[in-house]
Design a protein around this nucleic acid. Structure first.
Lengths: 211, 211, 211, 211
DNA sequence: GATGAATGAGGTTTCATTCAT
DNA sequence: AATGAATGAAACCTCATTCAT
């Protein structure tokens, strides 16, 4: 009986989580298609097939729903990227993995990528303030990690000391984002090799010491 | 008398143009600060010191005002960049000028740059549809011109055939945007030489044939 | 077995009554603090430590809960006052007891007194209609009893025929209410003797025949 | 032309004031009939024959509309009563005038009287807080003035020193309110002389020194 | 029998737009 | 021609009530 009750609670908890995810999924789709201000709570509720009141059981208000949506996915992405960057390892290998994982994210989470790019630049305008700042701070932290990678790579003579490491990080990430975006938005429009190294080459060729 | 009337009309026309510009300027400031949906027509009218009805004499509605604003500035920018890219000239010199002019634009038109970056990515969400698409098409056209520059540069052995020219264009423009953005948002945070070539180097080093 | 079941039911009945009283007590506290419309059924349920559904087992809806609350307490009060007024006895002694019992009620049931005063005047606005009327009718009945007391007192030459007995009743009750209210809301702010006769004197002095 | 413009502005101002008054009148009627929480802004707008947005041009929100309504009328009433109480004059004459003016108010402003009685007691529950307190403070100030009248009357031997002057004030005002209320709610139900002195007699007889 | 998750009607408020002056 | 008062659709959110478990 104890077990049964425990199981019951667990089942309810799981059910709740499933609903929460459904709401977040519906909201993500809509937000990424139309933007924060062009999506109404009614619309989200209808898409998620819940009553409007149910949304407010899970999230305090529209802003809370949006912030939760963005930050939870951010955690996912940060986690994946940090797992690569935080491991002591050859810098070039790390960069390859970073591009590979990022490409996978772009393929599998395009709707969120749109939102994220909107938020991580100053270009969001979605929320009065707060998320914007918070996401940008997280992005800066990621860039610092990438910069550290460049710094150690330069120290270890894996890279030429071409520029301030932070600039290298900013530049690389922007190239990767832009190319992946284009690649995914117009698949097939321009030939692209499967090898993630190809993206790096766009940026790398001059960075690597002469072989 | 004919002349006088013509002159009168002309004067009126000029006056009208001046008012139109004032409205657009007020709107640009507000939109770039708070985003399309967080600015009301009342606010624009108050900032521009016109009655609300006057705004509707110049622009059909809020969306029209916004679109006009973005597209007119786009013309300005496209014009400046095309004047550089369209002239037959050494490709490396052209790129240097392109970076120089772009840096100047970022410095002098930051409010608009924010709006533009919001629109040129899929990240705008400001307008139901339309501007977004139109701006992106124009941006694609610009990228094609930049790609053509790379292609001719490769053909003329000024650049190594590192990748598809279009990718090179996308990558270069994104690096330039990202670095300029950071440079301007946090001036002094990271050292940066005045020479626009330095930005190119971030990207170029591998592209240029061994000297 | 019959007995056992009867006892079971009785025990259940008592348990039910206890729960009902707990709900009513929680509701009374909340209603008197914040007013009908500023208290939600959720809040009452939480305060009474019941599930929301349970409230609806005892009361048809929020209005029913409120009406029950008010009318049950009214019964209590009417009972106590009628026990005094209905007994054949000297009119002045009756009035003294009436003031004494009323003072006790104000001290011990302040939360309800607030609700009652809100309802008995035209000032309630809590419920669309119905309770208001019903409480006011009961109050009118009480006033009639008090008026009858004055009438018989006048007939028996205990009181001077100062005015229509009903007006005397209205006036006395309003004085008693107002003074008790003030006395209880600001205890100590103004000196007040313990003797309930003192309140009567405010009103009586001219009513009593010259001694 | 100056005059014309001035007149225009004045005319607009007057028009605005007229509309404002119409909104307040509609709101007063509805609030006094159904209570704050049972009246919607839509209902007020419909009754006043304005669009909903127009209400928000005049009042920040529903609460502001309500507070304005109550406080403006309070000013009116306080003004009328203070004009009587503040003049140096025989105390008995002042009381007669006070009753007379109050009776007139009850006859002419019954809807507001209901609201006021709801607010001046602790029985309002309409607004979270604020108006309630503010109205009650004003009422206390009025009572203090009435108490001062009793005090000076007692000092000048116009009244017997029956009780603390503040209690006398509270008692008198509550009697007057209760009797007027009844008188107006059930006109003709109980005979009432035109002479306002009759109300005072209910209260006075013992207060006046033996003639 | 008790529970509380789910519902959705209805409330307040904003703001793009119109049109009489 | 310019104005800005007036409009009302539509947004967000609450909460009384129901019903499957």
């Amino acid at each position: 009986m104890q077990a049964e009750q425990t199981e019951k609670l667990t089942r309810r908890e799981r059910e709740k989580q499933r609903q929460r995810q459904e709401i977040l999924a519906a909201a993500l789709t809509l937000f990424s298609e139309k933007g924060y201000h062009n999506v109404s709570m009614h619309e989200i509720a209808a898409t998620a097939e819940f009553a409007i009141g149910t949304l407010y059981k899970f999230f305090q208000n529209k802003e809370d729903l949006y912030k939760t949506l963005v930050l939870e996915k951010c955690d996912l992405f940060d986690g994946a990227l940090y797992r690569i960057l935080d491991v002591p390892r050859d810098e070039v290998d790390k960069l390859r993995d970073y591009v590979r994982v990022k490409a996978q994210m772009f393929r599998e989470h395009m709707p969120f990528i749109r939102l994220f790019l909107a938020e991580s630049r100053g270009a969001s305008y979605n929320i009065d303030a707060g998320l914007d700042a918070s996401v940008r701070i997280r992005y800066q932290q990621f860039l610092k990690k990438l910069a550290a990678l460049f710094e150690s790579g330069i120290n270890r003579n894996r890279f030429k000391p071409l520029a301030d490491p932070f600039y290298l990080a900013v530049a690389l990430d922007s190239v990767v984002n832009a190319v992946l975006m284009m690649w995914i938005e117009n698949p097939g429009a321009h030939p692209f090799p499967e090898d993630p190294d190809q993206i790096l080459k766009l940026f790398f060729e001059g960075l690597l010491p002469p072989r």
